[in-house]
Computed example of a mutant assay.
Amino acid sequence: MTLNEYINLLNANEELRTHLLDNQVTDADIQQYVTEHSNVMLGYDLPLNLPFYRARYDSDNWTDKEDCSQYGYIQDAESVRMFRYNQDREQVLYTSTNPFIAFKEIEDGRDNNVYISKWGKAHNEDCFSVCTAICSEGIAADSTAGKYLNIMRKNLCPDTFRQAEEMGNVLEADSIDGYEGLNYRFSSAIASRLFQGCEALLTVSKKSDGKELNITFKREAVDTKLKIRAVYEIDAPSRHNGYILHINRIGIPQDNQIEWHEWRINMDSFRLPSNHQDQDLAAIRQIIERHDERRYQFRLFPNYNKNLDDFHVGIIVDNENGDRIYVEYKIDLV
């Protein structure tokens, strides 16, 4: 994005425009802009009945993988630095509505394993005061982002809806040519202001081509309304063409500690999906038992969006003819 494009996005007044063009914008300029453009809180209560995912790379200095607190916001507030939706020392939990997108948001090419934590509401009756700032350009109507865009459209009057879209454009702005971190300086200040009146901020994930949401929760909402459901240790995605499918271990929270388990497919649980009843289940069982990896690709892993005791859906690809075989199964933790 060019600087002029960003200035137009901000709808900046003459003084702010001059400071931006001269590369002399100050924190006071940004705070004045935020104050003038955040008078209307674009928020309302939503149940947010979704799982939320946060990804984190493994690292040499991360030793306590049994501590639930290591999978949420950064615990040491002094070490928190400004990011897109938080100011320095402001603890927030960054999540996505899809586990693969959660990884794409942090991906940097490292050949390390990845830990993906899945979060949900602590209590079924919980709602969140949410600031919706979703711009509609490029959003698929049947996607997660499209669903919440429609909720926003129905709940906000046309003028406020327009403001929400404009705010979404500013919050999600790409980097500006030649101006390191300028978009983050504005978006973090805006988000900090919005968090004074809401618990969560909905924006569209660019990594998902406009289909999924990023939901940022402030610390107080995490402490009172969110609960970690599971943690998945993922084999380094770089070893598998970037697909985070290879789940090594599954962590179950218990008394603020993570209990790690290996997992296996329950061989007695295989069944066919309702729309694939014409397949030969006995023949599929034989393929699975032989496990011929030269002919078949076995994509049989726990599904992140399922409860652990649900039936999971997997695919077997026949490399000789390209056929795809769909099966459902349960997993056992060991």
Results as ranks from 00 to 15, higher is better:
residue 111 D to T: 03
residue 74 I to F: 13
residue 96 S to W: 01
residue 49 N to G: 05
residue 62 W to C: 00
residue 315 I to Y: 00
residue 43 G to W: 07
residue 91 Q to T: 15
residue 32 Q to K: 12
residue 287 I to T: 02
residue 61 N to T: 04
residue 85 Y to N: 02
residue 81 R to G: 05
residue 84 R to V: 03
residue 82 M to W: 05
residue 107 E to I: 09
residue 193 R to A: 06
residue 43 G to N: 10
residue 183 N to G: 09
residue 220 E to Y: 12
residue 298 F to D: 03
residue 317 V to P: 04
residue 334 V to T: 14
residue 62 W to M: 15
residue 267 M to I: 13
residue 2 T to C: 03
residue 76 D to G: 09
residue 296 Y to W: 08
residue 91 Q to Y: 08
residue 184 Y to K: 11
residue 138 G to R: 03
residue 251 G to P: 04
residue 78 E to L: 06
residue 127 C to F: 10
residue 85 Y to A: 03
residue 201 L to I: 13
residue 240 H to P: 04
residue 209 D to F: 14
residue 34 V to L: 14
residue 296 Y to F: 03
residue 74 I to Q: 11
residue 3 L to V: 12
residue 304 Y to A: 02
residue 12 A to E: 03
residue 291 H to A: 15
residue 20 L to R: 04
residue 28 A to I: 14
residue 190 I to W: 01
residue 313 V to Q: 15
residue 68 C to N: 09
residue 64 D to R: 10
residue 28 A to W: 12
residue 73 Y to D: 06
residue 88 D to N: 05
residue 231 V to M: 10
residue 38 S to A: 13
residue 195 F to M: 10
residue 195 F to V: 12
residue 211 K to I: 14
residue 285 R to H: 14
residue 306 K to D: 02
residue 254 Q to C: 14
residue 329 Y to Q: 05
residue 59 S to R: 15
residue 221 A to V: 09
residue 184 Y to S: 08
residue 116 I to M: 07
residue 324 R to Y: 03
residue 113 N to D: 10
residue 317 V to H: 00
residue 52 F to Q: 07
residue 278 D to P: 00
residue 247 I to Y: 02
residue 271 R to E: 13
residue 129 S to P: 07
residue 137 E to T: 08
residue 83 F to P: 00
residue 144 T to P: 06
residue 253 P to G: 09
residue 70 Q to A: 08
residue 263 W to M: 04
residue 101 I to H: 05
residue 218 K to F: 10
residue 108 D to L: 10
residue 44 Y to I: 07
residue 60 D to C: 02
residue 106 I to D: 02
residue 106 I to P: 00
residue 165 E to M: 05
residue 299 R to W: 01
residue 300 L to E: 02
residue 328 E to A: 08
residue 38 S to G: 06
residue 34 V to W: 11
residue 238 S to L: 13
residue 239 R to M: 08
residue 63 T to C: 05
residue 19 H to N: 15
residue 27 D to T: 12
residue 207 K to F: 14
residue 170 V to H: 06
residue 124 N to V: 15
residue 96 S to V: 00
residue 241 N to Y: 06
residue 30 I to Y: 07
residue 261 H to R: 12
residue 321 N to V: 13
residue 155 N to T: 11
residue 94 Y to S: 02
residue 78 E to G: 11
residue 56 R to M: 07
residue 279 Q to V: 04
residue 163 Q to C: 11
residue 226 L to Y: 06
residue 211 K to P: 01
residue 14 E to G: 05
residue 281 L to K: 04
residue 84 R to N: 02
residue 130 V to A: 15
residue 258 I to S: 07
residue 230 A to L: 06
residue 107 E to T: 10
residue 172 E to V: 03
residue 330 K to N: 07
residue 16 L to A: 03
residue 38 S to P: 04
residue 167 M to F: 07
residue 3 L to W: 11
residue 289 E to Y: 10
residue 53 Y to L: 01
residue 294 R to Q: 12
residue 239 R to T: 08
residue 311 F to A: 00
residue 85 Y to E: 02
residue 174 D to P: 02
residue 223 D to G: 05
residue 321 N to S: 02
residue 69 S to C: 09
residue 4 N to W: 11
residue 194 L to P: 00
residue 50 L to E: 11
residue 268 D to E: 14
residue 121 K to V: 10
residue 294 R to A: 04
residue 134 I to D: 00
residue 89 R to G: 06
